[in-house]
Simulated assay, not measured.
Amino acid sequence: MLATGAAVAALTLSACGAGGTSGGSSDTKFVQGKGGVDTVAKGDRKHAPEITGKTLEGKQLDLADYKGKIVVLNVWGSWCTPCRAEAPNLVKVAKDTEADGVRFVGINTRDSDRANAIQFEKEFKVQYPSLYDPIGKLMLRFPKGSLNPQAIPTTIVLDRQGRIAARALTPLSEEALRKMVEPLIAEK
């Protein structure tokens, strides 16, 4: 319980921040990129943790149902200015890559009232589902030393096998998001 509280506190301190370090050892096998984007070579990727829960609309969502698809997980909050800045880019790339087998899922965090998050989605015309995670429990499922979320916003891209392939600890431009997703679309 104390460890969970400490992790939540650490995440709260970095909320809406510009990034950080992985918190892992030197054998993490991921490459720290420029602009806050880290990637993992295909052979070194680790499976994402089980991510399940209720969406903002109250429907059950299980990330395992997306097996065989590339999944872009975006951790966001309606109160987060960088999240608001990147939202149109996420919406555009989600629409443009759907035919390529890419699915987007949001993880809304630190919004104590779903209404604020739902209003955010309406304002930015977000068509993909978002899990409602007001206290950050889903983010804590990612193991330390992995490409885990450490700031808000964070975007994590999973390959078709459900393995963590890339992470950005910064708000993404459309171009940067495409650079994270396109190599995975090309993988067979």
Rank of each mutant, 00 (worst) to 15 (best):
G106Q: 01
K144M: 12
K188E: 07
M139P: 02
A10H: 14
P129Y: 06
K34L: 07
E121M: 14
V157N: 08
T12N: 12
D111M: 09
L169R: 08
R110E: 11
E123L: 12
K137I: 06
Q32W: 01
T12M: 10
G17I: 10
A94Q: 13
M1R: 10
D113T: 11
V91E: 13
M180S: 10
P82K: 13
K54A: 05
G33Q: 04
R178L: 06
E182S: 04
I70T: 07
E187N: 04
G136Q: 08
I185M: 06
D96S: 09
G36C: 07
I135L: 05
K46H: 08
S14K: 13
N74Q: 12
E175S: 13
T55M: 05
G43M: 00
G77Y: 01
I70Y: 06
A99S: 12
R110L: 15
S22C: 15
V8C: 04
G145P: 05
L90E: 05
A3F: 15
L140T: 10
A3D: 14
E86G: 10
G19N: 12
Q119D: 15
V181A: 06
A166T: 07
S146H: 13
V75E: 08
A166V: 06
G36Q: 03
N116D: 14
R160Y: 10
S130K: 06
E123M: 09
E187H: 09
C16G: 10
K67L: 07
G20S: 13
V40T: 12
K46E: 04
K42T: 05
T97R: 03
G101Q: 06
A166G: 09
A7Q: 15
R45D: 00
D133V: 14
D111E: 09
E57I: 01
T97D: 01
R167C: 03
K188M: 02
T12D: 10
S112I: 06
A99W: 00
T155Y: 00
S78C: 05
A166W: 00
G24W: 14
T81V: 15
L138Y: 13
I107E: 00
P88K: 15
K42D: 02
Q32N: 11
Y132K: 07
F124N: 02
A7G: 15
Q60A: 12
D113I: 09
E50A: 15
I135P: 00
A3S: 14
D96E: 15
T81N: 11
V91T: 11
T154L: 04
V126S: 09
P82A: 14
A6Q: 12
T12Y: 15
V31T: 15
C16S: 14
Q127L: 02
S112K: 12
D113H: 08
T55I: 05
V126G: 03
S146Y: 14
T4H: 14
Q127G: 08
Q32C: 02
G136D: 08
R178S: 01
V72S: 05
W79M: 08
G136L: 08
A64H: 11
F104K: 01
L13V: 06
K92W: 07
I164V: 15
S146A: 13
K42L: 09
